[in-house]
Design a protein around this nucleic acid. Structure first.
Lengths: 248, 248
DNA sequence: GTCTATAACGAGATAGAC
DNA sequence: GTCTATCTCGTTATAGAC
């Protein structure tokens, strides 16, 4: 009985994964707006109504893809922040680990930025799904806000820790921004100094501006040495959130 | 005879404009991926084959919409840089004109950023068309690169002029970025110092990162006081391209 | 209970004959 | 330009296999 349920659940998980994989293929080929349950079913050799056992509607399938994408980029960011390898040139502590020293806030910041960029370049269509134009007629449910926040949380944690361990070199918070900064800090990261909340959100948006321009082709015929350019830009970005120092 | 041709040409211009207007409506309703010549024709009371006398293909209609959008945001940026009103809170020289003084580089920079943001918020679907996810199956022809460059050219001109009139306070150009910066400066703005080219392109991308996050909904439940936050962020951004000073 | 298949609905796109 | 026959789509109801 429990073995049967185990087998059923395993089968269910496998079919669910197959549906999402096929849907991701269509995402790449036709775009999110044209994602079609029938086409997915056809390609899988199923009948369209069978898909409704796994996803109650087309929008629910889209939501699952969006959550998966946010989770994938969030996990890449978390691994990079923790100093795990895999991102290649981006991981922090490549030199510091040898000497036993902890990676600095700046190094971790750049590592996370590079990890997010690497993921985006490797999965441009999933990146477009979450950071590109909204899908017409689709409105994201509450389920997406947690996964969507993961990358931002990683950046917050880096700056928070660096503030404790190394101190931050911040611009003074302008008066006109004080109420917003205090609300933001309280809302999103209790314990974060209001003076760092506003620059941090700005740097977060600006980081994805750099990545979006590269992934969406705005850098064609403009920027050629993209990785070195990106590393330089996000290092300067780190300075605006108070993370000082020059890269090694 | 020439009067007849004049009337014909006037009619052609009017119909072309009507087609593009209807196409823009569909852009808003269904997204660029589902833009269909047939639906546009139906809505205009024409037959689909008649549209082909105005646009040889769906992609040509898309290209026209893209060029129009780049031109519209480019013109908004150029007007703001020239100190023309219309953007509301953003125009430079509001105080300086009264005293007869020229707007500073920083003031003009912020004015351009605000004008681009205002345009984007007023035309979110056209903004998505040019700065959002690429349209699947569509590849932009050469005709779009000129209009696409207009906003960037405005930013370059502001920094160039400020460099002549006020001087710039720049970070030193790192060696690893020197070849790219020199190529970029030579390619895109002869006469621009290589040390400013790289930060300028980065600031350009980051500016659109701020706007995209706002237009695409990433700031929902995160940033509430969006205009004051935006003005602050782009002012700080101006500092990274050597435009110094605090806003008035 | 869990799944798949058949059939159907209303709406819309599409291709081709006329 | 028009009309029609044939596709697609999301979604539901229903019946039967395991």
């Amino acid at each position: 009985m429990s073995a049967v349920r185990g087998a059923r659940e395993r089968a269910r998980i496998e079919v669910t994964a197959a549906i999402k994989d096929e849907a991701r293929k269509q995402l790449a080929a036709e775009g999110a707006a044209k994602l079609s349950l029938r086409a997915v079913a056809r390609e899988l050799g199923m009948v369209s109504s069978a898909l409704y056992r796994y996803f109650p509607s087309r929008d629910d399938l889209l939501t699952a893809l969006i959550v998966d994408a946010y989770d994938a980029v969030g996990e890449a960011a978390e691994r990079a922040a923790a100093g795990e390898p895999g991102a290649g040139a981006g991981e922090p502590g490549a030199g510091a680990r040898a000497t036993g020293a902890r990676a600095t806030g700046l190094t971790r910041w750049v590592a996370v930025a590079c990890a997010v960029r690497d993921w985006a370049l490797a999965h441009p269509h999933e990146y477009a799904l979450i950071y590109g134009s909204p899908v017409p007629g689709y409105s994201a449910p509450q389920d997406t806000v947690g996964p969507a926040a993961r990358v931002g949380m990683v950046l917050i944690a880096i700056v928070e820790e660096a503030g404790r361990d190394e101190g931050l070199a911040l611009m003074p918070l302008p008066d006109e921004l004080r109420p917003e900064a205090e609300r933001l800090a309280a809302d999103v990261a209790p314990g974060l100094a209001p003076a760092v909340a506003a620059p941090l959100v700005a740097a977060w948006a600006q980081l994805f501006g750099l990545i979006s321009f590269e992934v969406f082709g705005q850098f064609n015929r403009v920027v050629e040495a993209r990785e070195v350019f990106f590393r330089r830009a996000v290092t300067e970005l780190a300075r605006t959130v108070g993370l000082l120092g020059r890269p090694g």
